[in-house]
């Protein structure tokens, strides 16, 4: 799965990984530092970079096929006239999602991760340098479809949004607590299918989320019919206004 994801070993730091042989005196050294300190440093740099330009960054995470790209298309149609948007697309392979966004006339940078199952702050940093941040208000980062690995990596975003399609089980928050605890907003997508599915209970899904100690807002929507998309756009605009005025997050 992730064994080609050596994104932390670069030509710049490889020389530090030198070999040696044990012998002689031992010294314990206390460290107490995050295991992903390198990623977190890069993420803080990204965040500072975005804030210099007043750009709000929203990281979208979900299983593959939960409807991240379709929701982005709808969002662009509704907000594209009022705000300057851009998208960073993370996928294992292909530029298909980027082409769909580009067709909407929005700047997009595709990151193809190969076999790596998540985006990290270094990848996003390189992508940021391919965007003109001075001409942006809102940047979406569409993470690799995966409910496990992306949750562990800070990218420099301001908000995490986790999508849960109603075609998945309503116990997903219980099965993937790390992902759902990381969310600042949870979206139940493909809600137009609820009547035909019958076995996804939004209340039960929300109950599983609350058991994780999460009090974040939950919205149901359908990017296909447009139902509920307005509420999602309002959440985004509240977050944009909050960023501009320096107020607290929604």
């Amino acid at each position: 799965m992730c064994d080609t994801c050596g994104c932390n070993v670069t030509p710049g730091n490889r020389h530090l990984l030198e070999s040696a042989h044990p012998a002689g005196g031992r010294e314990p050294v206390a460290v107490l530092q995050g295991l992903l300190a390198e990623n977190d440093r890069a993420a803080a740099h990204n965040r500072a970079h975005l804030e210099t330009h007043g750009v709000l960054a929203v990281n979208l995470m979900s299983s593959p096929g939960a409807g991240k790209t379709t929701l982005l298309e709808q969002t662009i149609d509704r907000l594209g006239g009022r705000w300057r948007l851009a998208v960073i697309e993370g996928d294992l392979e292909t530029e298909r999602d980027a082409e769909r966004i580009r067709a909407r006339g929005v700047p997009v940078v595709q990151i193809t991760t190969g076999t790596a199952c998540h985006l990290d702050a270094h990848m996003v940093h390189r992508a940021l340098h391919r965007l003109d941040l001075s001409r942006l208000d809102l940047l979406f980062i569409e993470n690799v479809g995966n409910l496990v690995c992306p949750a562990a990596f800070d990218l420099g975003q301001h908000h995490n949004v986790t999508l849960l399609a109603v075609t998945e089980g309503d116990d997903k928050p219980a099965k993937y607590p790390v992902m759902f605890r990381a969310a600042h907003l949870v979206l139940f997508t493909k809600a137009d299918l609820l009547p035909v599915l019958g076995d996804f209970a939004p209340d039960r899904a929300e109950d599983h989320l609350r058991r994780l100690g999460s009090a974040v807002p939950v919205l149901s929507l359908s990017a296909r019919t447009g139902d509920g998309v307005e509420a999602w756009c309002r959440w985004l605009e509240t977050a944009l206004d909050a960023r501009r005025t320096g107020a607290a997050a929604p």
């Binding site: 002689g24 460290v31 530092q33 992903l36």
Partner: peptide
């Protein structure tokens, strides 16, 4: 998710 401590071995004489 913390690196708590490392034990180092020093250059033997």
């Amino acid at each position: 998710l913390l690196l708590a401590e490392v034990e180092l071995l020093h250059q033997a004489t």
